[in-house]
Structures are given as C-alpha cells and as structure tokens.
Design a binder for these strands. Structure first.
Length: 435
RNA sequence: GUGGGUAUAGCUUAGUUGGUUAAAGCGCCAGUUUGUGGCACUGGAGACCGUCGGUUCGAAUCCGACUAUCCACCCCA
C-alpha cells in the first residue's frame, strides 16, 4: 500500500462508526471526575525534554529508549509527552496553582507517545484519562483516588472484570532498607538470574519481582517483601488507605509485586488489571508520588494520581457483554422529487433542525426508491416524500418506518409541531439503551 | 531491541500436483416501467494475488530477500 495512504506504525484511527464510544466514555469520566471535585487541566502535547528526564526518571525505560525527542528549529530539545503527570505537575508549579487552595484536584485527557514495539492494546500513540491531586498526604486522598477509578468502572458495569491490586512501596527512607535486603538476597542467586534482572539488581532491584522469566519468578517467591520493611509511618498510612477502601466497599488484593515502573512513585501503588484482553492487561495504574514536585524544583508537596488507558478500556468493553449506548439514529428523512420539492425539503429541514431534530435529505441526487433505501439503511424513524402534489396541497404523508403507518403532516408553519406530535404518539424512543 | 505467525477486492475467504481473461459471500453503486425502504432478482464498480529478484516455456502457487502486519518478550496505560 502506498505510504501516503498508510497510517504511521503504532497509530490508530477512530472511525466514524466507533467514535461514539470515545464520546460516551469521555462524558462519563468528566461527570465522574466532576462529582469528586476534579477540574480539567489541559497541557501541551510537548514539553521540554528535561521535564520528563527529571519527572519520569532518567533510569526508566520510558526516558532511556521510548521518548519522541527532537530539536526545534531554534535548537530547543522538546519531547512528545510519554505520560500525563509530568505536564500537570509542571503547570501546577508554573502557575502556582497551589495558591488557589489545597488540595489541587485535576483531571486530564491526553494523547501520549512512546516509541516501542506495537502490541495488542499497546500503541505508540495512545490516550489516557487521569486524575491528579496535590497537597495532601492523608491516606484519605489515596482512598478517594482509588474510589474514583472504581466508580468509573462500576458505572460501566465492568467492575467485576477488573481486579484491583494494591501495594505500598514505602518512602525513600524505608525503601533504602528494603533495597539493601533485596540486593543481598538476589546476589546469592546471581548465577541464575536472567540478564535483564542482573542489570536491575543494581539500578532497580524491585523490578526483579515482576520478572516473567520462570527462573527469576521462582527465585522472587522467597525474596523479602516490601511490606515487611516499610517504616511505621508508611505502614500506618497503608493501613489507613485500606481502612477507607473497606469502608467504601472497594475490593482489593494486596499484591507485593506491584512496583510500578516510573521512578516517582512512593508509598501507595495500585493497578486495575483485566483478564482476556491480551498481555497488556493493566487498564489503570497509579499511586502516590510525594517526591515529584520537589524533584521538579518546587517546595515539597505530596501528590498522587492515576492514569487510565482509553484504548485498553475500550478493548475491555468490546470483549465484555456491555453495550455502550448506541447513538441516536436519524429521526426524519425527507425524500424529494424535483427542484421545487428539494427547495421545500431544505426549508422544512432548517425549521425542524432548529428544534433539535436529527434529520436528513438526499444530497446525492438519487431516485425516490434509492432515497427510501438510504432512509432505511441509516435507520430513519420517519420519512416524508415530497413531490409536486404535496407542494400544491401543502400537505404530505409521514411514514413510520418501523410500522409502515402513515399520517398526514402540514408543510407550512405547522410542520415542526405536527412532527413532534407524531413522534410523541408513536412512543418511539430515540434509542434503546441496554446492558 | 529479541522471538514466532501471516500477507489474494473495503471485509471474510476459495484457488486442486505451477497451465489461458484470479473466484465466491458480505458490503458498496445502479436497476427490476411511470411517486415510497426492509425481501427477492439482475447488472456494475472494485485485486498489478504485499514488494523486488530467482527457478520455469509458463508463478497467486516453488525458492530467496525486503516490507507490512499480528502475537509474545521487554516495558507500561
């Protein structure tokens, strides 16, 4: 296929027949975030490269090998955002939003870019919905964050398709202790670890814990657990989070292997994981990152949030028996024959559309029969045929496409009124919503 | 970056041991007389059989390379 008619590797089109899913989900998420008191923040697709190096972390795979980085004509290095948190945190600092009062609660919809091998539910351009909260250290904030994610899934009737995996990786102080213990333990098995895990041993030993290699995961089974090493403050914090989740009726599994791959995480980390949508099952992931703001040059300020993968969520919905509300079909199709009738059709359509009715007419120049076929194909609920007779009488027949039943309708000022009357009498709902 | 699978119309596929104009269903467009959709029928458009090279009198079919794509590892949403 010619290059110009081929999309770039790892990118996806949302086609007209599917866009309603995105629109529906975005609306639902805005409502849900709003009901928790989060306000939308919109940040640029690109940022200074340094922001991600500092914010996401120099040692991460994302920064080391997955960023779309390039120089502007002016010689500035900028990067297409690989995730949404860094930009939001930058904006918080740049505009000193924390002076508007704490906590700052924001949500975002962003497109993200990572240069990696494409896979089922993993793309080079992908979309995230996310929540951010700044200026609160309380476990209540962690619990609320998780509740917000859970309630989105509940509203979509997929709460039971996802399992919430929860963990605490402690603060930098207690993690240092833990790292020491981990390194000691894994060093004893140096000969058996896979190559990647050997390099992890130095820079991020926790990642060995979720290595998929049978040998490594066997060794990891007996490795020290974070939860045995976290300090009293961190333990108490974690207990607080669990207590409020329990109170909210949110079910979770404490999974010591959830460690997250971004450097900025501290204390609470969590993932909502789905089965049955391929290897990339993490639909939503997040946690607390109390060190991030300071890392970016601000005063120390606790922070937390999560990101939800839109493509993965849609994949999950597609693989489940949940049917998102199908968009309204055409309410009225006006077929016409001849110039006079076409003019009348345009006049009537202007009138009826201004009442909020979804209506169409022929813009192809088809025969009457073909127009009716088209009306049927687009699922029009009612149709009106206009010809010389109707123009003359200023009356036409309106046909219920489902029952075939016909009624008279005025073509003058009474048109919109008559149509609404017919619509009400038919008891026709514009769309059937069902699970 | 590493592995494995697959490439024939918009989609799903057929194509026999290599043999003349590459087939079907769905979809799309038009028509089945004069002013009414769904069903049915008729017709039409649409494929350089992923690309390049090789073997052969002859390749969609055999061989090679490349490219694309899918799945998995890695990593993550």
């Amino acid at each position: 296929m010619a290059l110009i008619t081929k999309r770039v590797y790892g990118s996806e089109d949302v086609l007209p027949k599917d866009s309603y899913k995105w629109q529906f989900l975005e609306k639902l998420m805005r409502e849900e975030a709003g009901s928790f008191g989060f306000k939308e923040i919109r940040t640029p697709v690109f940022e200074h490269t340094e922001l991600f190096q500092r914010g996401v972390g120099d040692t991460t795979d994302i920064v080391q090998k997955e960023m779309y980085t390039f120089n502007t004509k002016g010689g500035t290095s900028i990067t297409l955002r690989p995730e949404g948190t860094a930009g939001a945190a930058r904006a918080l600092l740049e505009h000193a939003i924390y002076n508007d009062g704490l906590p700052v609660k924001a949500y975002y919809f962003v497109s993200c870019y990572r240069y990696e091998k494409k896979q089922a539910n993993r793309y080079r351009e992908f979309h995230q919905f996310g929540l951010e909260a700044y200026g609160t250290e309380s476990p209540a904030a962690d619990a609320e964050m998780i509740c917000a994610a859970q309630s989105i899934f509940d509203r979509l009737y997929i709460g039971d398709r996802l399992s919430l995996e929860l963990n605490s990786i402690g603060c930098p102080e207690c993690r240092a202790e833990y790292y020491k213990a981990l390194k000691e333990y894994f060093s004893q098995h140096k000969g058996d670890l896979c190559d990647t895990c050997l390099s992890r041993l130095e820079r991020n030993p926790m990642r060995i814990l979720d290595c998929k290699s049978p040998v490594c995961s066997e060794i990891a089974k007996n490795a020290p657990m974070v939860l045995d090493y976290i300090c009293d403050d961190c333990r108490e914090h974690f207990e607080g989070v669990k207590r409020l989740l329990d109170a909210s009726g949110v079910k979770y599994t404490v999974n010591p292997k959830i460690v997250r791959g971004l450097d900025y995480y501290t204390r609470t980390v969590f993932e909502f994981v789905a089965n049955g949508i391929g290897a990339q099952g993490t639909v939503c992931g997040g946690g607390r990152y109390d060190g991030l703001i300071e890392e970016l040059g601000g005063q120390r300020m606790p922070a937390l949030g999560f990101a939800l993968g839109m493509e993965r969520l849609i994949a999950l919905l597609d693989s489940s028996d949940v049917q998102l509300p199908i968009p309204d079909t055409c309410e009225l199709y006006i077929a016409s024959m001849g110039d006079k009738a076409q003019e009348k059709a345009f006049e009537l359509l202007k009138r009826i559309r201004s009442c909020g009715v979804y209506a169409e007419t022929d813009i192809v120049g088809r025969s009457l029969r073909a127009q009716m076929k088209y009306a049927d194909k687009i699922g029009a609920q009612f149709s009106v045929v206009l010809g010389d007779n109707e123009i003359e009488r200023s009356r036409a027949e309106i046909k219920n496409m489902q029952t075939g039943e016909k009624r008279e309708i005025r073509l003058d000022n009474g048109f919109a009124e008559d149509f609404l009357q017919v619509k009400i009498e038919s008891g026709n709902k514009s769309a059937e919503y069902f699970k």
